[in-house]
Design a protein around this nucleic acid. Structure first.
Lengths: 241, 241
DNA sequence: GATTCGTAGTCAATGGCTATGACAAAGCCT
DNA sequence: AGGCTTTGTCATAGCCATTGACTACGAATC
């Protein structure tokens, strides 16, 4: 197996393992097997090489994780550009990040709180700061607003990904909470839960995200000197949202 | 402890190890040694018992982690009660959770995305849902609003905790990004970063949290049928916030 | 074209981790 | 006192990250 067929043709046993191939296979392992399916020995075996061969390309597992983190940001922000109105820009950015993170939950959970400082990340940061400046924030205010906004998107998408990367049993147990434990509460002990007990387990993750994103965007518009640059995002108060 | 004294004297080798003692020591280990300082063997040794003795009280490490998660929620929500105005209630709840999580980052990072379904958690959930009902949300709307609100607080505090539970080197490298990499960007490639490059590394975590919390609360008030029940949280639009 | 040298992949091994099952002694119940 | 359960101990299995010595391939030099 070392010399002959691995994938294509004769497959030279040397120089075949590249960082890109390792990252791709890592992502595949993380996607199919979750955190537990991802170990350097397993990675080596999946690539058809010695369990320790990956160490020739990455100094440590953490080093590899960082590379995966950057790969995710690149995937999320590929082709991303500022939109005419800053409100649309930050909405889009948050949605993109979440989409990629949900597609690779285990990988995202490993890398959500890491800063890669590489081009893909810096471009995303630049676009978001641009949106804040467009919103009329200036100087330190712009910096804080950007951090609040960016860290929010990362924390939210990271949190959802962390949950989705739990193993099936833990996830089922946690989801079942809304169906069983919270549905059967005592009326006098937990009157508020009791009041909406029938609604709690029907809540979809996408709806929750749409809600919090709307809340954050509205709140930002509210604090921004320029709530909207295009006129299509009116700020109205009231139950009719 | 069942028969004689808890600590002093000859220390009976049986019945001395209690779930509470294990959780307390786990937290101590996590606080001082981070994630890596916390393993069942180390825990046993720190408690002065056999490395595997903890398994007599918790079925698995995950089981113990869940107990720690509940302990944290209990610590965070101890004595917590609804305030007259729902705006204050959710603000307080978020601040309390963050304070506890920041005090025990490693433990928090392990447990932020878990649902314990135990009394401390359920009481917190009940209070938050109560706030949403007070805000005028009804039925499914209240459920979604609560989830958005609660999950936001957990995700944010969990994200901060996850970062703080990285080892010192990784944390320093990530923080240094704002001081070095982002400060020295090329003006034409990243014009927006360049514009506020001097402000980026002075941003304090507390300020970011205050900002996002204000944004979320404002946004929620904006969508709520009853933006405020006490009259002290006016909703005004404009740069003077 | 032969020699040299760097390095990608291999192999064996270390020390740590979660977890299990067999065992022993300490308490409880009758 | 006899029996049962519980709690701590011990030995062990199997996996993980990481390291160092070794090997053979390929490129650069002569």
């Amino acid at each position: 197996m070392t010399t002959t067929a691995a994938r294509p043709g004769p497959a030279p046993r040397r120089g075949w393992l590249t960082p890109e191939a390792i990252i791709t296979e890592s992502l595949r392992l993380l996607d199919t097997g979750g955190r537990d399916g991802f170990s350097l020995p397993k990675l080596g075996r999946a690539l058809g090489v010695d369990p320790t061969a990956v160490y020739r390309h990455f100094a440590s597992k953490d080093d590899l994780v960082l590379a995966i983190a950057d790969h995710l940001i690149e995937e999320a922000m590929d082709g991303f550009a500022a939109l005419p109105c800053w409100v649309d820009t930050i909405t889009q950015a948050a949605r993109r990040l979440r989409t990629t993170y949900l597609a690779h939950p285990a990988a995202a959970a490993l890398s959500a709180c890491r800063t890669t400082q590489r081009p893909a990340e810096m471009r995303a940061v630049d676009i978001l700061i641009g949106a804040m400046l467009q919103a009329g924030f200036e100087g330190p205010q712009a910096a804080v607003a950007y951090r609040a906004c960016g860290d929010f998107a990362l924390a939210w998408a990271g949190g959802e990904a962390a949950f989705l990367s739990l193993d099936a049993g833990q996830q089922r147990a946690d989801r079942a909470a809304w169906t069983y434990a919270y549905r059967a509460v005592d009326r006098t002990t937990y009157p508020n839960i009791w009041q909406i007990r029938d609604e709690l387990d029907g809540v979809a993750d996408d709806d929750i995200f749409d809600q919090i994103l709307a809340v954050v965007v509205t709140g930002l518009q509210h604090q921004a000197p320029i709530p909207c640059t295009c006129g299509n995002h009116p700020l109205r108060t009231g139950p009719d949202h």
